[in-house]
Amino acid sequence: MKPFTYQRADDVASAVAAAAATPGAAYLGGGTNLVDLMRQNVERPAALVDVSRLPARIGIGTDGRLWMGAAATNTDVAADPVVRRDFPIIAEAIVNGASGQIRNTATVGGNLLQRTRCLYFYDTGARCNKREPGSGCDAVDGHNRMHAVLGASPECVATNPSDLGVALAALDARVHLAGPAGGRTVELLDLHRLPGDTPHVETVLAPGELITAVSVPPPPAAARSAYRKVRERASYAFALVSVAALLEVRDGVVASARLALGGVAAKPWRAAVAEAVLTGAPATRATFDRAAAAALADARPLAHNGFKIPLAQRVIVSTLEELS
């Protein structure tokens, strides 16, 4: 691990100021991903600004949205009675990820900014455009079983490993930021960038910008939701594919549908095309099959991950059937 300085911030303003004043600074949340990557020499910040003790409140705001402080731990979100009652898919996604210990430390903000689990990204002995821009990608023609089938580029085929992010993508969440230039809000779906030819640029965050909160509008009252994750090991493993779905069916017709996929792309993947297929269509197996096909229509398999396409489709169909 490269030497670094450490300071703890007591509020958002001082955190942003500290980061702005310190070249090479990174924000430290729970550290469950950043500290690991620093120990692997993948992340090499010169300074850490600890934001894990910043506001962590979870609750319904005056705007009716669910607000989660960025420093709220995954466990506290999953255990929150309001979350579990009104936004159960958030809790479901969280408890499908990592382990009890990691969820106790990992924060909402950090979860969204966790880096890919691509084995080549993690290994400084391999080439990786994300880690070292321009060095090449060993995954494209290498062992790419866990890699992306949607939205990838010849420069990078890594996936985003978040479970929570997939649920939030389905819920139209917003991410609230603070930075040297002030505060702003971005849609969660716009937070992550696809790799293109700059895979090292993973989000739209400007230098020094900090996630301060995530807010979520209430889902349609009549919608049922589910988060489904497929993996070989029964627990404590990243997804082969995962599906977050909300479905509202009235009189046998899909009134509204939200569908997001995990494990298939560099970002939590909202399957808007599939939602369009679903909306207004009869809630039948045939419709769900068409939606699943649409969701993966643009998918491009690599040598070892082609199975993710039919697997994701199967899970989409069964999840929708379950919710209908």
Binding site: Y122, R233, S235
Partner: peptide, 14 residues
């Protein structure tokens, strides 16, 4: 490539 306990999957309790 998977030189870690996060990526080499020994069985867990579950």
């Amino acid at each position: 490539l998977n030189a870690s306990l996060a990526e080499y999957h020994v069985p867990v309790h579950a």
